[in-house]
Amino acid sequence: MYMNMTQGKIPEARHLPLGERLQRLNELDRAKEYIIVCRSGNRSSLACEWLSERGFQVTG
């Protein structure tokens, strides 16, 4: 998938800020696998750990 580096967004990706994960957890489906991405890898690592602990299939 092509990523526009000037905008820092992956086309058609869902943007879920780490700080909103509790309020928006119901938007995610435990039956699906998610690829978590952030610019440096720090937030995506935290998100992967947090989601994995709650039964989600994630890759960061």
Rank of each mutant, 00 (worst) to 15 (best):
Y34W: 01
R54F: 04
E33I: 03
M3H: 08
A31S: 13
E12N: 15
G8N: 12
E53S: 12
C38E: 02
W50H: 04
N4T: 09
E27H: 02
Y2N: 14
T59G: 14
L25V: 07
R14D: 13
Q23L: 14
M3A: 15
I35H: 04
F56A: 04
K32F: 07
G41S: 07
G41T: 07
R54Y: 03
L22A: 12
S40R: 12
Q57R: 14
L51K: 00
E12S: 14
Q23P: 05
G41K: 01
V58S: 09
F56C: 03
Q57I: 10
A13I: 13
V37E: 02
E49K: 08
M3K: 07
G8C: 09
R39Y: 08
I35R: 05
E53N: 14
M5E: 15
E53R: 07
H15T: 13
R24H: 12
H15Y: 13
Y2S: 12
T6N: 14
M5T: 11
G41P: 01
R24W: 04
M1F: 07
P17K: 03
E20C: 08
N26V: 09
R14F: 15
P11H: 04
R21E: 11
L22M: 09
E49V: 10
R39P: 00
R30M: 09
R30V: 14
R21A: 10
A31V: 10
L51R: 00
W50S: 05
R30W: 02
G60P: 04
V58P: 00
R39T: 08
G19C: 07
V37G: 00
L46Q: 06
Y2H: 09
R24D: 12
S52H: 05
L16S: 03
I36N: 01
N26Q: 10
V58E: 01
T6K: 15
S44E: 01
R54C: 07
G41M: 08
S40I: 09
Y2I: 15
R14A: 14
E27V: 05
L22D: 09
P11C: 11
F56V: 03
S52L: 11
T6R: 14
A13F: 04
S45P: 05
G8E: 08
R14C: 13
Q7V: 13
N4W: 06
Q7H: 08
E20R: 04
